[in-house]
Design a protein around this nucleic acid. Structure first.
Lengths: 182, 182
DNA sequence: CCCGAATGAGACATCACTGTCTCATTCGGG
DNA sequence: CCCGAATGAGACAGTGATGTCTCATTCGGG
């Protein structure tokens, strides 16, 4: 049942990320359902967008939980987080471009995640794993941006799906990690 | 004369990046002109978006020229490119999110730039400056993503404007550069 | 100071999208 | 096999945005 819902949301996120002005008709077609059915599941565009935001936030929070970001080396934790986020990268990309969420009331949910991610980078700095001249806020922003860019590149065939996690991890960690003195 | 145009385009890009469904009325207000005047400059929304794309592409191409990306060390060239792109980062962010350009006919212009940026990263790899396990295509995508994320973070007050270039450069180059054996 | 050009404000018809409805058809569990 | 639930297709009115127009006002160079 909710597998249908998941499928529709996924298609909607993919389309709206690429074309934010898409009509309900286009979204329905992209999801492979009729406009009537789309309306039965999500009464109106606002509801759909809200569901997209909620679902994306919930899924990313789950990734954050499963990655156990408080445990182990910070760089390994970041790597786990990216790997866990990969399946929901499409939703992340949507949330990232949908900056409109900074005017509605979704802030609380999103901010909660933001704090956790920033906390992870801060921990890495305190433990001497990450360089100190790049702020946690920026590293967080960069994480979102790179995951989104990666998802988009995969979806567009410019990068192989199996390389997504490695590409994002290597670039972000390579830039964030402190040079080993040696 | 065209300073007005530049101003309007800049405001439109900033607004549309944040809220892609903004009405012409909202865009006009954001630019500080009346809807009638906005219409006198750009006859219709399509025209405006097209102008935004063209202007963004032209400006980025200029940044590419001025950075002289064929000269000197590749990593320094990338740094110059990021620095030159900073003033037009807002347009870059718009182009990046406006992935719709992959269905219209703007491809040619954009592809031309894409080839040049990828070429720069490829040169860096051939000269032993950049690591080989991250493809030029991905590094290019990451460059766009990071510039966009940076512009967005600055516009939102999470990063100081003067830090934009350094933040983006350090992260991207840190991740892309080959480790010096030493 | 003057006059033409540009602008702001608003009215207006048009149009695409939206949300709701009906009805025929398909699907799937019992 | 059967029946209720879900779906697809389409019609329909309501609504908000759009594009065009007019007119009064402001602006800026000569």
């Amino acid at each position: 049942m909710s597998l249908d819902r998941e499928h529709v949301l996924r298609a909607a996120a993919a389309l709206l990320t690429r074309k934010a002005t898409a009509s309900m008709d286009e979204i329905a077609k992209a999801a492979g359902v009729s406009r009537a059915t789309l309306h039965r599941h999500f009464s109106g565009r606002d509801t759909l967008v809200r569901a997209l935001e909620d679902h994306g936030i919930a899924e990313f929070e789950r990734a954050l939980d499963e990655a156990r970001t408080e445990e182990g080396d910070a760089d390994e934790a970041v790597r786990r987080l990216i790997a866990r986020s990969e399946p929901v990268a499409g939703f992340l990309a949507f949330l990232f471009t949908e900056n409109q969420l900074y005017e509605a009331g979704i802030n609380e949910g999103w901010n909660r995640l933001d704090v956790r991610v920033q906390g992870l980078f801060r921990r890495g700095q305190e433990e001497g794993v990450f360089r100190l001249d790049l702020s946690p806020a920026w590293l967080t922003e960069a994480l979102y941006g790179l995951i989104g860019a990666g998802a988009w590149a995969v979806q567009d065939g410019r990068v192989a799906a199996k390389d997504h996690t490695r590409m994002v991890s290597e670039l972000l960690l390579g830039g964030a990690r402190r040079r080993m003195e040696r």
